[in-house]
């Protein structure tokens, strides 16, 4: 049953992100993108299984003792988070520069000007 809940949650998050991406306000669009990429990360983590145990093995070297959740997805998500951070930061600064150049952050107005 639970996977339906999970699917529902992710679906709603993506839907909300999409809705925001379609707004006029650039800041909202950036929010939308942020939500979407965070949801994608959450999705990736759940793909590794949720209740396996921390993928950290005790000190010193006797590996393979207990079951752990998939460490690979975690590594992937970590990479994705960092990359997402870099791009989002750029998008934000870009938003600011758009405002400086155009005097507006209304995409409708921007589009009509073009």
């Amino acid at each position: 049953m639970t996977q339906f809940v999970l699917a529902g949650v992710l679906g709603v998050l993506f839907a909300l992100g999409t809705f925001l991406v379609l707004r006029r306000d650039i800041v909202r669009v950036v929010w939308g993108v942020t939500i979407i990429s965070q949801s994608a990360n959450v999705y990736l983590v759940t793909m590794g299984g949720l209740s396996g145990g921390v993928p950290i093995l005790s000190h010193g070297g006797h590996g393979g003792g207990h079951a752990v959740s998939d460490p690979l997805v975690q590594a992937l998500v970590l990479t994705a988070i960092v990359i997402g951070f870099g791009t989002t930061a750029f998008a934000l600064v870009l938003t600011y520069r758009v405002y400086q150049e155009h005097g507006t952050i209304d995409l409708l107005e921007l589009g009509e000007k073009a």
Binding site: V21, I26, V29, V30, V33, I36, S37, S39, A40, N41, Y43, L44, M47, V73, L76, A80, I83, G84, T87, T88, F90, A91, L94, T95, V98, E101, H102, L110, A114
Partner: peptide
């Protein structure tokens, strides 16, 4: 303005790609 459109579309694209890879 051009970069904004480019960036936003590709950011969404990146998220979709993650979804697919996952």
């Amino acid at each position: 303005q051009a970069a904004l459109q480019y960036v936003v579309l590709n950011l969404v694209g990146s998220a979709v790609m993650l979804l697919a890879i996952g």
